[in-house]
């Protein structure tokens, strides 16, 4: 026959009592911290998933920062290029106007006006935003300087008309926007990243082109300066020739401007996509890490009831023996 001793009753009772109290305490902790688990060992698979979600969230938040930073630069560059677009159109108008005018004085006035527009172009292209030059690439300096003679120099001191390959004079910089950046050895796969800068040389041009024995600058600003100088000469034939070349360069310029606009739109789309990802990840993180208060409140109450029952049972069971009656 099984003998039931007081010590065995005490041991069993205390074990159950402690389990209830411990479970109640854990439940209270969850509600106080708002976390469904506090240690990896409480939910190992949940913790493993939590690490992945946290990492993805951290990456996405940084990609959004990168895109915002990039967007600011691209938008500023786009603004500058739009200003230059207007200046070119004004110069084109003045060039047409010049070809219909005979007065030397009027040529000078038009040329001076174009000189001013060239200066405006210089301001637009050398603009800076919070200490960063909008058209800086690998070096944070204004891209162009204009000499007193009207010659345009790149920031490394080279005359833009003498540049044959812009990458000999500047380096493109890139940003990781979460497109799966890869390297082949030490070489960056540029298709896996986005350019972090807008090259003034690429947008406005460099080097020269010879048209029927006349050398024209491929650089729009330098070309505008050339237009002003041509108007000053009053040579209508030269004006006609340079007008044709300016029209051609303007088309190239507009293509570049459109490309910058497209990049801006692409970045907006990327940001929107990553923000959606962040929203989904945040919800996932919430599911993984946050306590469900309604559910936990019920669990907590259940443990509390069990704890109270333990106490009541204890007071009834523990002292009972024959000694209560003899």
């Amino acid at each position: 026959m099984t003998r039931v001793t007081q010590k065995a009753i005490n041991r069993t009772y205390l074990s159950g009592y402690n389990k209830n109290l411990s479970a109640y305490n854990t439940s209270i902790n969850k509600m106080n911290t708002g976390r469904s688990f506090l240690k990896v060992s409480e939910n190992v698979s949940g913790a493993a998933r939590t690490y992945k979600v946290r990492k993805a969230l951290s990456r996405d938040e940084q990609y959004i920062e990168n895109i915002e930073d990039l967007s600011d630069r691209i938008e500023s560059a786009e603004d500058g290029l739009r200003d230059i677009n207007e200046y070119i159109q004004t110069v084109q108008e003045r060039l047409v106007q010049a070809q219909g005018t005979a007065s030397e004085e009027e040529y000078k006035v038009l040329a001076r006006e174009i000189d001013d527009l060239v200066n405006n172009c210089m301001q637009a292209i050398n603009n800076s935003n919070t200490g960063v030059y909008v058209f800086a690439t690998n070096v944070n300096e204004p891209p162009f300087t204009l000499s007193e003679k009207g010659e345009l120099f790149f920031r490394d001191g080279t005359n833009v008309n003498e540049i044959t390959d812009r990458l000999d004079h500047e380096t493109d910089v890139y940003a990781d926007i979460g497109a799966g950046m890869t390297f082949e050895g030490d070489e960056l796969n540029t298709a896996s990243v986005t350019a972090n800068s807008v090259s003034a040389l690429e947008c406005l041009g460099y080097g020269t082109t010879n048209v029927d024995g006349t050398t024209y600058s491929n650089n729009v600003i330098s070309l505008l300066q050339q237009v002003a100088d041509t108007i000053r000469t009053g040579d209508r034939e030269a004006m006609g020739k340079i007008e044709g070349f300016l029209d051609k360069r303007y088309k190239d310029f507009v293509v570049n401007l459109t490309n910058v606009g497209n990049t801006s739109k692409f970045l907006d789309d990327c940001k929107s996509r990553i923000e959606n990802e962040v929203a989904a990840l945040t919800e996932r993180q919430n599911d993984l890490e946050a306590v469900d208060y309604a559910e936990e409140a019920i669990v907590s109450q259940t443990y509390y009831m069990a704890y109270q029952i333990s106490i009541q049972m204890g007071s009834k069971i523990l002292p009972k023996s024959i000694f209560s009656f003899i």
Binding site: T2, R3, V4, T5, Q6, K7, A8, R11, T12, S321, I322, F323, I326
Partner: peptide, 18 residues
């Protein structure tokens, strides 16, 4: 096992009362 030992070796109030 401790409870089993107590079944044999432990003191029972009722038993001692009897």
């Amino acid at each position: 096992l401790d409870n089993s030992r107590d079944e044999i070796s432990g003191v029972s109030y009722d038993e001692e009362g009897a």
